[in-house]
Computed example of a mutant assay.
Amino acid sequence: MKTFITCATAFYMFAPGEAFSSDRLSPDINRMYAVWPEGDVWRVKYRFHRGWEEITPQRFDTENAAFCFAYDHFLNS
């Protein structure tokens, strides 16, 4: 798992074969994005206070595309 933290927001990128698991994330950060592979596509979820929510139904072809979507969401929220 790769982690990028900026402006009190964490971005977690899980590797192929690595399962998405909330218990592996820092409990000290309440605004998070998770990017993880699911089969041949990449997914994005967002968490701020109340739990994980899907911010788009879109699936991405690459990890970078999913991360760029998450970062754009961060910049515009």
Rank of each mutant, 00 (worst) to 15 (best):
I5G: 11
T6G: 11
C7S: 15
A8I: 04
A8R: 14
A8V: 09
T9F: 01
T9H: 06
T9Q: 05
T9Y: 08
A10W: 05
F11D: 08
F11P: 08
F11K: 08
F11R: 06
Y12S: 06
Y12F: 13
Y12W: 12
Y12C: 09
Y12Q: 02
Y12D: 07
Y12L: 04
M13P: 00
M13Q: 09
M13D: 05
F14K: 08
F14S: 02
F14I: 06
F14E: 06
F14G: 02
F14V: 08
A15S: 15
P16V: 00
P16C: 03
G17I: 12
G17D: 11
E18S: 10
E18F: 05
E18G: 04
E18L: 06
A19W: 04
A19D: 12
A19E: 13
F20Y: 07
S21Q: 08
S21K: 08
S21T: 05
S22R: 09
S22A: 13
D23S: 08
D23C: 03
D23E: 10
D23V: 07
R24Y: 02
R24D: 01
R24P: 00
R24S: 00
R24A: 01
R24V: 02
L25Q: 01
S26H: 06
P27V: 06
P27N: 06
P27W: 01
P27C: 04
D28P: 00
I29D: 00
I29P: 01
I29E: 07
N30H: 13
N30W: 13
N30S: 14
R31N: 12
R31A: 10
R31C: 10
R31Q: 13
R31T: 12
R31K: 14
R31L: 07
R31W: 11
M32L: 11
M32I: 04
Y33H: 09
Y33A: 10
Y33L: 07
Y33E: 02
A34Y: 04
A34I: 08
A34K: 09
A34E: 03
V35Q: 09
V35H: 09
W36S: 00
